[in-house]
Amino acid sequence: MKGTLYGIGVGPGDPELLTMKAHRILTGAKVVAYPAPDSGESFAHSIVAQFLNADQIEIPIIVPMRVERFPAKSVYDQAASEIASHLDSGADVVVLCEGDPFFYGSFMYLFERLAGDYPCEVVPGISSLMASSAVLGRPLAARNDVLTIVPAPSDDETIETALTQADALAFIKVGRHLERVAGLINRAGLTGQAAYLERVTLDNQKIMPLSAVDEGAAPYFSIILVYKGAEDWIAALPIDGLAQ
């Protein structure tokens, strides 16, 4: 019998935000795969490291962390082939994914390669977007508010349209696009309604008004939340009063 492929969301960083189901599946699997940079530690692995045991086989999926393009297809083709060999032997394989597997998660690329041939289950995780709203202490949206999620690498026109049309916005993958996105938000007159967050739920998390952020690049794990909907959350929790 073939093993089962599990894609589990490990959350935004705090190990205690791992779901009970994800923990059960993770600790019971023979093989654990996870994305890893070509230098440094795997963030996904670090989140669950305390729950792993020495008998588990680990498969680091080396994904270069760089601006220029790299052969991503071959990376996932090779990883899928290695994972398939374990599934064919009857071993279950858990693939770790930061946040949620199907919310901009890398697991989806393995899913599309393997789900047609093997039993597969996706275990949702807490995304950094939900965690950011929680640590900020301000709801993302309510009632009929339109929430728009915008990848920061999007072009200026896409961002400007979203800023005009949406009631609430979440900019993800901010990184090196911080200065440009902050400028577009300022041009739309929304800087006073925007909060900047990075590395949420970790010991070194930062939460501050967007206006207080230094120019330059931000970490990849950073988010900008903007609210301009019908609720009076800005008055109830002034962005300018946030602790850094």
Rank of each mutant, 00 (worst) to 15 (best):
I83V: 12
Y109E: 09
I47Y: 03
V75S: 07
E198P: 10
E58Y: 03
I57V: 15
R143T: 01
E58K: 13
A29Q: 06
P101L: 06
A152G: 02
L184P: 01
V32P: 00
A33V: 01
V181M: 03
W233V: 10
V213N: 07
E215H: 12
V95E: 00
H177Q: 02
L210A: 07
A49I: 08
G7K: 00
I47E: 04
G192M: 06
I185P: 06
I234W: 05
Y196H: 10
D145A: 02
D156Q: 11
D145R: 02
F221G: 02
A218T: 05
K30R: 12
A134P: 08
Q244M: 11
D155H: 05
L87H: 12
L163H: 06
I57C: 10
E16D: 14
L52W: 08
A131I: 04
Q50M: 10
P15Y: 07
V135H: 13
A194H: 07
V94T: 05
V75C: 06
H177E: 03
S89D: 13
P37C: 00
R143S: 09
K173D: 02
E121H: 15
Y118H: 13
I172L: 11
E68G: 10
I239P: 07
P101D: 06
D156H: 04
A230C: 01
T148F: 05
K30S: 11
T201R: 11
L114F: 13
I239Y: 08
E68S: 14
A134E: 13
S42C: 01
T158W: 00
A54K: 15
R176Y: 00
V174L: 15
A54G: 05
L225G: 09
F171I: 03
L140M: 14
V150D: 01
S127M: 07
M20A: 13
S85H: 14
P64D: 05
K73W: 10
M108N: 09
L136H: 13
H86N: 12
E157L: 04
Q205W: 11
A230N: 05
I47S: 05
K206A: 15
L114T: 14
I172M: 14
V75G: 07
Y227V: 06
N53I: 12
S211Q: 13
L184K: 03
T161K: 12
R187L: 11
I149V: 15
D156R: 11
V200D: 09
R24C: 01
D203W: 08
R113I: 04
P151K: 05
M65E: 00
T164A: 08
G99S: 04
L210R: 08
P209K: 09
A188L: 05
R187W: 03
M130L: 14
K2F: 13
V174R: 05
A115P: 04
V122P: 11
S127P: 09
L96R: 00
A80N: 12
A72M: 14
I61L: 04
A72V: 13
D117G: 12
G216Y: 02
N53F: 06
L18C: 07
Y76W: 15
A195F: 03
V67M: 09
F70C: 07
V48P: 03
L18K: 06
M108K: 11
L178M: 08
H23A: 15
K206L: 15
